[in-house]
Every structure is written in structure tokens, then in C-alpha cells.
Simulated assay, not measured.
Amino acid sequence: MYKRVRRRIVAEINVVPYIDVMLVLLIVFMISTPLITQGVKVDLPQADAEPLDEQSKTPLVASIDAQGRYYLTVGANEKEPMSAEEVAILVKAHLAIEPGTPVLVNGDGAVSYNAVIQLMVLLQTVAGVPSIGLMTDSIGE
């Protein structure tokens, strides 16, 4: 006669399927996280803001007035109003001649936030500006 073999009951949890699920979730989150975050890269100061050094290069100042007109100022040389694309092209040309020149955005308080962001995006994409500063008035002024 045949001898019946008794199998011993295994009381362990098989974690292989859980590891597979966790790996899939990890991959999904790794792919979806960069798609969720949107914004413009801005180098924020780590301490209180201070005025620019006297020894630094004269900054390029891209301005938007209350009527939404764009200007580009190099030092004290302010020009006539122009389109945002013209500002970006002029900034790109200036940075090709003098790389490392600081670029600042000066927006009127009445201008929409969207207009300032659109100018910053244009300066980054068209002109290739790596870092853009935002101009403000002093608290006492």
C-alpha cells in the first residue's frame, strides 16, 4: 500500500506579490511627480535681501508698467515700449556679449501676476537666462 505523505502547514506570509505591487507604485510615483509640479525656477534668497554690490555688472532690468507695456533698461538707459518677445531677444543678444550679467524683472503693482510670470518664462526659454531676480521697493519708501 501507498504511504500517505503528510504535508506540513506553512505559516509564513508570501511577500513577493507585495514587493511587486510596491515596485509598481514606486515607478508610477516617480513618473507622475515631475508632471504634477509646475512653475518657474527662481533662485530665492536664503537670507534678507540686500542691494546689489557696487562692483557687480550693471543689471538688465525688464520692466512692465501699469498699462502692460514692456521696457528694457540697461543702467540708466531706458528705451521706448516694446513687445515681450523683443525684450527677450535683446536680453539674449546682451547676454551673448556679456555673459553673467544679472537680469531683474520690475513689475508695477497694478500689473497682473500672470504678466510678470509670462515675462519670466519668456526670459528663461527664449533668452536662456539662468537666474532672474525680482525688484522691490524698500519698506520705508
Rank of each mutant, 00 (worst) to 15 (best):
L95M: 14
V42E: 08
A62C: 10
A84N: 08
D108Y: 05
V105Y: 01
D137F: 08
V105G: 05
E12H: 08
E54G: 03
K3C: 04
M30R: 00
V42H: 06
A49R: 06
I132R: 03
A115H: 11
G107Y: 01
N14D: 15
V116L: 08
A110T: 15
Y18V: 04
A115I: 10
A127T: 14
N106R: 12
I31E: 01
G39Q: 02
D65M: 03
Y18S: 05
L123I: 10
E78P: 01
A115D: 15
V28S: 05
D20S: 11
A93T: 10
D108V: 05
G109I: 14
T101G: 05
V40I: 15
E50H: 12
A110S: 15
V10S: 11
N77M: 07
L60M: 07
V129F: 06
A88S: 13
S112H: 07
D20E: 11
K41T: 12
T125A: 03
I132T: 10
A62Q: 08
E141S: 03
N77F: 09
M120V: 15
S112A: 14
T136D: 10
R69G: 05
L26A: 13
V10Q: 09
L60T: 13
E54A: 10
Y71D: 07
V91F: 01
A88K: 01
E85T: 14
E98K: 04
M120K: 08
M22P: 01
